[in-house]
């Protein structure tokens, strides 16, 4: 037996004695392996300072970086999903919901807010990928419908930030019908002459892409985001050959003609502000942000 061989099988250190740096202090870039502190990452708007990889962030972060002084009001925050079909796979849907709520401190995979971007009012509906993969269920569909109605009534532009694996299977056809529901509501928004900006972030796939995400008057994405209808694995299995390089990245989707532009996170606020200035929609009444809510941090 070689001197380097283990004398005993398996790892002998108990989990509680395992020595690791605490989570959340350091960021290790999954693209370029660059390491920096989480503080540095946040100061750089959660973009890797070395390779500009745009990490996935949540609705609170987007609200904070978009709205003037990071201040906004949440809308329709009283909606919650429930297990209407008693859906059970390896785990009951109800348990998935409970653990997602606990883990994320959110009620579902979308939050809607109103605030100002360079002094212009804007309604932003933003997904949270950490909540069951940003999946679209009844709550998301209802929030988009309510946001659309609110945008029409107040004559305030709407922005939807997508970050989703697609429809929520555990709500079966209810989730499928949210595609029709949201698209139908957006057709009313278009008729009312209110601009709709769709912002597709990593990842935007499935029923979300095949409904509201592709329906923007302006479609914008972040660099390097995965955008598609079918997921790359499904396509690969279907056609049984390798996928082209950069396939389904935002750069690729821009080339194939389905995006207006790709905007880096540091330029997002300015770009949205410019768009709002050019569209120049006058709100029907003064938008008063009654109880200004500061961003999460």
């Amino acid at each position: 037996m070689g001197w380097f061989k283990r004398l005993k099988d398996g790892i002998q250190t108990a989990t509680e004695h395992k020595r690791e740096t605490p989570d959340g202090l350091w960021y290790n870039c999954k693209k370029c392996k660059h390491t920096c502190t989480s503080k540095e990452l946040k100061e750089n708007l959660w973009v890797c300072p070395s390779c500009q990889y745009h990490t996935r962030i949540g609705s609170n972060e987007y609200f904070e970086l978009l709205f003037d002084e990071g201040k906004y009001n949440l809308l329709f925050d009283d909606l919650e999903a429930y297990d209407m079909l008693s859906f059970v796979d390896l785990k009951p849907y109800i348990e998935r919901l409970e653990s997602a709520k606990k883990k994320t401190n959110l009620k579902d995979a979308m939050q809607v807010s109103i605030g100002r971007v360079n002094k212009k009012p804007l309604i932003v509906a933003c997904m949270d990928f950490t909540f069951i993969g940003g999946s679209m269920g009844s709550v998301m569909g209802e929030k988009i419908a309510l946001a659309t109605e609110y945008a029409i009534k107040k004559r305030v532009p709407l922005m939807i930030i997508s970050k989703s694996g697609g429809a929520r299977m555990m709500e079966s056809a209810y989730s499928l019908m949210q595609m029709a529901k949201t698209s139908a509501k957006l057709s009313q928004l278009a008729q009312a002459g209110i601009p709709y900006i769709s912002f597709l972030t990593d990842p935007t796939t499935g029923g979300v892409t095949a409904s509201f995400a592709m329906l923007g008057d302006i479609n914008i994405s972040e660099p390097g985001a995965l955008i598609g209808f079918a997921g790359p694995r499904v396509i690969k299995e279907t056609i049984k050959r390798d996928l082209p390089e950069n396939f389904q990245t935002s750069e690729y989707v821009l080339e194939t003609g389905f995006l207006d532009m790709i905007v880096e996170r540091k330029d997002l606020k300015e770009t949205i502000g410019d768009l709002l200035n050019i569209f120049d929609i006058q709100p029907s009444s003064r938008i008063i942000l009654s109880s200004l809510r500061s961003g999460s941090n």
């Binding site: 892409t209 598609g228 209808f229 079918a230 396509i235």
Partner: peptide, 17 residues
């Protein structure tokens, strides 16, 4: 809807939406 490379390139999602 067909999950293929060309379908994606020609905008399967946009067509349905």
């Amino acid at each position: 809807a067909y999950p293929g490379i060309e379908a994606e390139e020609r905008g399967q999602a946009e067509a349905i939406a």
